[in-house]
Design a binder for these strands. Structure first.
Length: 282
DNA sequence: AGTGTATCCTGCAGGC
DNA sequence: TGCCTGCAGGATACAC
């Protein structure tokens, strides 16, 4: 998916134009992205005004008047595209799943090729409960190196799998997990509990700097990702290891490797990220 | 309890 | 050209 930086880039785009819009109607070309029936969903959002746009982990939030929240999980290929009027010609979304029509005439489209994404509407307390089950926001102060160390110590899971678990830390996905582990010099298959305090502090800093740098460049486009204005992200060419199997490590020149952990690729440098700690820091 | 696997869906790249 | 396999940014119901 879109991970945290991509969701944040979408949110920043939407914030410029969406707050203040009132929802006139909803079309649902692909009801499988909703948890409810299209009819029930539409009834709960129709007539509501969007007061703000937010983010929690990889979820984009549309905050409605009266306290309801539309939570959009972007899945692997989802995005939210904003149009001033009903799109026609070249800018038409390729895989529209849900279309919000505003009274102003503008349109917000949830476009999702693979439809692993979801669009839900929740009452304020239900949303509070939901997000309480998610881990800390990595860019906020509540996320600390010491806290990360203590949490890692309690798990025997491979550290890469640990980082992908949204209940432990919110917003990190496969790209930035690989990038952060490389920056911190930690092999992705190491058991979380083997990460030392020193390494955890390094990993904490690596996660934050990688996510922030990706946000600064508008996120990473591997293939499908687009921001709210339909533009690709610019961080892809800055990736050090993700998708670069066989290329030289930018830190030491060793050939980068790909391995599979829990059915998903992890990219790493065997020199900078040895299985048993003590690697040089890139 | 905590982990790993298979699965949802579409599309693309590479091998033959 | 076409057919096949594998792989893809995520999350979750299961089996162990």
């Amino acid at each position: 998916m879109p991970e945290l930086p991509e969701a944040e880039t979408i949110v920043r785009g939407l914030r410029r134009t969406v707050p203040g819009e009132r929802i006139r109607g909803v079309d649902v070309p692909h009801p499988d992205v909703l948890r409810a029936s299209p009819r029930a969903f539409a009834a709960r959002v129709r007539g509501r005004r969007i007061e703000g746009v937010g983010r929690r982990g990889k979820n984009v939030l549309l905050l409605l008047d009266g306290g309801r929240v539309i939570a959009v999980n972007l899945g692997m290929t989802g995005t939210l595209l904003r149009f001033r009027e009903v799109p026609r010609g070249g800018a038409v979304p390729t895989h529209p799943a849900v279309r919000f029509r505003f009274r102003s005439g503008g349109v917000l489209v949830f476009d999702d090729q693979r439809r692993f994404g979801t669009v839900e509407v929740l009452e304020a307390d239900a949303w509070t409960e939901r997000q309480a089950r998610m881990g800390p926001e990595p860019l906020e102060d509540a996320f600390t190196g010491e806290g990360l160390f203590r949490a890692l110590r309690a798990s025997v899971s491979p550290v890469r799998s640990w980082l992908l678990d949204q209940r432990r830390i919110a917003g990190v996905g496969n790209i930035y997990a690989s990038e952060a582990l490389h920056l911190a010099g930690i092999h992705p298959a190491r058991r979380a509990r083997t990460v030392t305090r020193r390494e955890a502090v390094r990993l904490h800093e690596a996660i934050r700097s990688v996510l922030q740098a990706a946000i600064d460049h508008g996120g990473t486009t591997i293939r499908d990702y687009r921001n709210a204005d339909g533009e690709a992200g610019g961080y892809g060419r800055r990736l050090h290891v993700y998708g670069r199997e066989g290329e030289p490590c930018p830190a030491c020149g060793t050939e980068l490797r790909r391995t599979v952990i829990s059915n998903r690729s992890a990219y790493y440098c065997p020199t900078c990220q040895p299985r048993r700690g003590g690697g040089r820091r890139p």
